[in-house]
């Protein structure tokens, strides 16, 4: 999965941006992520980790969405 220099969103350091490249969700969860704006080439910023390190808040299309590392690791991004 680590080809082309893409990393899972969960690895995106705080304060950095990543461009969404692929999602490995199926069915309803996939649709939910797409509806939240995680479509290809969307710029996502890692904002803040929760006190225990997980979940992490991301800024996507102007909204702040928190994802657990399980979900965030299914989104591959290109580090910007």
């Amino acid at each position: 999965m680590l080809d082309k220099g893409f990393i899972p969103l969960s690895f995106l350091p705080k304060g950095r941006f990543g461009k969404v490249k692929s999602l490995s969700f199926d069915g309803i969860s996939r649709r939910r992520m797409l509806d939240l704006g995680f479509v290809t080439d969307t710029l996502v910023e890692a904002l803040q980790r929760s006190p225990s390190g997980d979940p992490t808040a991301y800024c996507v299309r102007g909204a702040v969405i928190a994802l657990r590392s399980e979900e965030a690791s299914k989104i591959m991004v290109e580090l910007r």
Binding site: F25, S29, R32, M33, L36, P55, A57, A63, V64, I65, A66, L67, R68, E70, E71
Partner: peptide
């Protein structure tokens, strides 16, 4: 197991 979860943090 826990299912997938997203939480919006509104302004």
């Amino acid at each position: 197991l826990p299912s997938s979860f997203t939480l919006e943090l509104p302004p």
